[in-house]
């Protein structure tokens, strides 16, 4: 088995209106339930917006603290799921369902060393 990070690429700006977001969140929860039911679930989380981030940078013996995010971009990771599956095709299948549910691009990336 191998672990994959499925990260949801969210565009910058305000989240969709509640009447749009409601059905999306229902669909996302359903996919999350399916991943758990299949025994593939390792971890999942939704993130607060990038403006809430704080960045730490090593500087000599010190570590500098600054307001985040680390990189401003048109998109950012809005949430992620880690799945444990036999191979990339299985990870892509969960990624496909997540992309449909969130209506957003999903990046699938293998976890090195089997997550150990």
């Amino acid at each position: 088995m191998a672990q994959y990070l499925l990260s949801i690429q969210q565009p910058a700006g305000d989240p969709p209106a509640p009447e749009v977001l409601g059905p999306i969140m229902r669909d996302v929860t359903r996919v999350d339930d399916e991943i758990r039911a299949a025994g593939a679930w390792v971890f999942a989380a939704a993130l607060f917006p990038p403006a809430t981030a704080t960045v730490l940078r090593p500087a000599g013996d010190d570590v500098l603290v600054t307001d985040g995010p680390y990189a401003e971009g048109k998109e950012h990771v809005g949430g992620f799921t880690v799945v444990d599956v036999p191979d990339l095709d299985a990870a892509l299948e969960w990624g496909r369902r997540l992309a449909r549910a969130t209506t957003l691009p999903v990046e699938v990336r293998p976890v090195a060393g089997n997550g150990v």
Partner: peptide, 14 residues
């Protein structure tokens, strides 16, 4: 190798 692209003929649906 790293992303484990399977060495397999896809299932009928795919």
């Amino acid at each position: 190798r790293d992303a484990r692209i399977p060495y397999r003929v896809p299932r009928e649906a795919d």
